[in-house]
Design a binder for these strands. Sequence first.
RNA 1: GGUCCCGUGGUGAAGUCUGGAGUUCACGCCGGCCUGUCAAGCCGGAGGUCGCGGGUUCAAGUCCCGUCGGGACCGCCA
Length: 575
Amino acid sequence: MRTHMCGELRSDQIGQTVSVCGWVGRRREHGEHLAFVDLRDHSGIIQCVVNDDVDVRSEYVLRITGTVRARPEGTVNDGLPTGEVEIGDCQVEILRQATPPPFPIDARADDVDENVRLQHRYLDLRRERMQKNLRVRSKINAAVRNAMDAQGFVEVETPMLVPSTPEGAREFLVPSRKEPGSFYALPQSPQLFKQLLMVAGVDRYYQMARCLRDEDLRADRQYEFMQLDMEMSFVTQDDVLDAVSEAVLDAAEVATGERPLPIERITWREAMDRYGIDKPDLRFGLELTELTPIFAATEFKAFAGAGAIKGIRVPGGADEYGRNQLDKLTDRAKSLGAKGLVWLKTTDEGFDSPVAKFLSDDEAAAVRSAMGAETGDLILVVADEWMTTCEVLGTLRNDLGRPPVHEGPYRYVWVVEFPLFVGVDKESGRPKPGHHPFTTPHPDDLDKIESDPLSVRSIAYDLVLNGWELGSGSIRIHEPDLQRRVFHALGISDEEAERKFGFFLNPFDYGAPPHGGFAFGLDRLVAILAGEENIREVIAFPKTQSGTDPMTNSPIPGDPKALAELGLKVLPPAT
RNA sequence: GGUCCCGUGGUGAAGUCUGGAGUUCACGCCGGCCUGUCAAGCCGGAGGUCGCGGGUUCAAGUCCCGUCGGGACCGCCA
């Protein structure tokens, strides 16, 4: 039907008779016997010179046959890859007429209400930007698959209809017709299956896995999302990180044409100390500075006895931030859990600050020196429990300096040695798992599981890109004694463990190899590499923030007959 | 569950604070003219439940209350 794609025609084809197919973009008519038609397919746009009087309108689907020729002197279009040539003597075949689209099928639709774009997603996807995104995604998928295959991983598909599991994200439930009142769940991840595949001796498993979580949506979260899910036997953390790195770096290379440097590592502790967050954005400074020792014997009540005192320095911020803005920053800090926020404006004489008079000369000088502050800088200080201090300043740091996620350069980082337990459950008073309850404790911290659980590190790691968590993983516990100790630390009795996790852990008794794995979100990786700051832009048919699809109108009310067959009855909405 | 922003011909915006006739701009659409344009140009035209409901007022796109839809974020996402 066609000999070339619209966007591939160049001077090389001059003289050739070609056929191209596509949609009518812009057209410029100069009377009955001359019209310029921009024909578009996914590869680009070619100008066709039509001398017949054919009625050709926006988005008509055409097949055009004609001769490639150089454009006349002075009419070359530098803005178009095909701009040196055009198709002349065009024979136009209308394959399908079209009604005018609700929005222009080009970059102008970037500004159109997203709801309208989603209502007509098939038209939105027709645009160059979205075509590019679909294709980048496809290339990344292929690169990831190739990388995993080349490393000896076996792609195994796991079920979409799985049992509901008690822990973790809220699940989507699927009613069973054969057993009314019983339900499957859609998998929030293939976690249990991939570990059982290790018991099965698969050794290296991977899957492009669709995961489903019934949690509220965000710019970086959809109900349904894709993960590169993988698991390996007889490995250390380094083996897992290397295998994942290979896939991620290959993906980055096909998407950007440039292979990133090896991914650096930082411990969770250092990430919190320096960036105040477990998914640090390394693209900008504003790092947290340790000030605790300076105030070891301070008389300033707000600082005395604080677990940690840290500051961030905003270069030249003294003039930039007025009283009003500083009050807002203080409110922000308080809403994040800090008792307050101390701000210091660096002057030639010392500090301009409401609390300047409470600082001794030595303390002021030490702060200035530790922060590397120069006149005109703004310093923000928080004094609180270590975790609170870090988190509050980390959030302020992001508020103040973080560029949009898709703006280069790309800064990948492995965050390792996550704590095994995070926080304490209000009801039980027991620690809560940081990653999941099957994560291996750090070998150096085994003796603290009972005595000081919150200080126990784990062999768990996250991959972070430009401040977005791409994914996480861990080395799993494969020995029953250690698993029992961790369960006990979590306040899970042997009986409860058997009831909740028996179906998953009992198979380990038949010989579970040491194993560990990882899963990272492809949508997020593709979005960043495609230069998008919202994963909806790299998903062909995404849901809105409230979980609806304006194109298909899903979700829709259940059909009474179908409900009856499933043994379901819909209750009136709670008031 | 919560906070904030947005909703005006097909599309994007202005008008809303400070109430006075559906007013304006650009794109698109329809018709006409036009043989080298590429954001083609020129002339003419059509197109509206100002998201929806209620209230205040002589009068509401504009003020108030509620509601629906979209977005950003918090909670949530082991």
